[in-house]
């Protein structure tokens, strides 16, 4: 487990770095094809939505294809919100194990993502906590599930997949 945690910590750092470097293909390659990506909405001051099939999410994709769609839009040059892209810096910390079940290693962490809009020279920090479900494939850990609980959910204009 301790080795697994060190490996998971490195994977989470790598994920943040690849997003900051806008290396989209390498980032997508971290995800299993059936990876679930879920960022619930909030239904009160203290509770997020709990069932993405009955309640609203900020983002919900049942597979990596949803993330690939996001990358397509980012690369299209035809999204005014994404052209030019914002610059980001991910800080991922407090990585800790959260159990292992059916070959999936759960890892919790906290994040700050600093986002800078070159158009207005303004910046914002998105922060919250993340649970990754990781599996081992071909000797390396890959992402099977990612749940992002965004603490500051009044979104300034936009939040794209690379901002958390």
């Amino acid at each position: 487990m301790s080795n697994g945690l060190a490996e998971a910590t490195a994977l989470l750092a790598l994920e943040g770095m690849l997003l900051d470097e806008q290396d989209w293909d390498a980032w997508l390659a971290l995800y299993e094809e059936d990876a679930e990506f879920w960022m619930p909405a909030w239904k009160s001051e203290s509770q997020t939505t709990g069932d993405p099939q009955r309640e609203l999410s900020l983002i919900y994709y049942a597979g990596r294809a949803g993330l690939e769609d996001r990358v397509q839009r980012i690369r299209s040059g035809k999204s005014v919100a994404s052209t030019p892209l914002r610059r980001t810096a991910h800080m991922v910390g407090n990585v800790m194990p959260a159990g292992e079940e059916g070959g999936v290693l759960s890892v919790k962490s906290s994040f700050n993502v600093h986002v800078y809009d070159t158009r207005t020279k303004t910046q914002h920090v998105f922060f919250g906590r993340t649970t990754h479900g990781l599996v081992r494939r071909d000797g390396a850990l890959r992402i099977r599930r990612k749940k992002v609980v965004l603490a500051n959910d009044c979104i300034p204009t936009m939040l794209d997949i690379y901002c958390v």
Partner: peptide, 28 residues
């Protein structure tokens, strides 16, 4: 409900594929 949610999140959310382009256009 699932159909409604997925289309909603795609189109209407500020974390989706469409509204951020509207609001970015307003800002422009």
């Amino acid at each position: 409900r699932i159909k409604r949610l997925r289309q909603y999140e795609d189109f209407f959310n500020p974390t989706g594929f469409a509204t951020p382009d509207d609001t970015s256009a307003y800002e422009a």
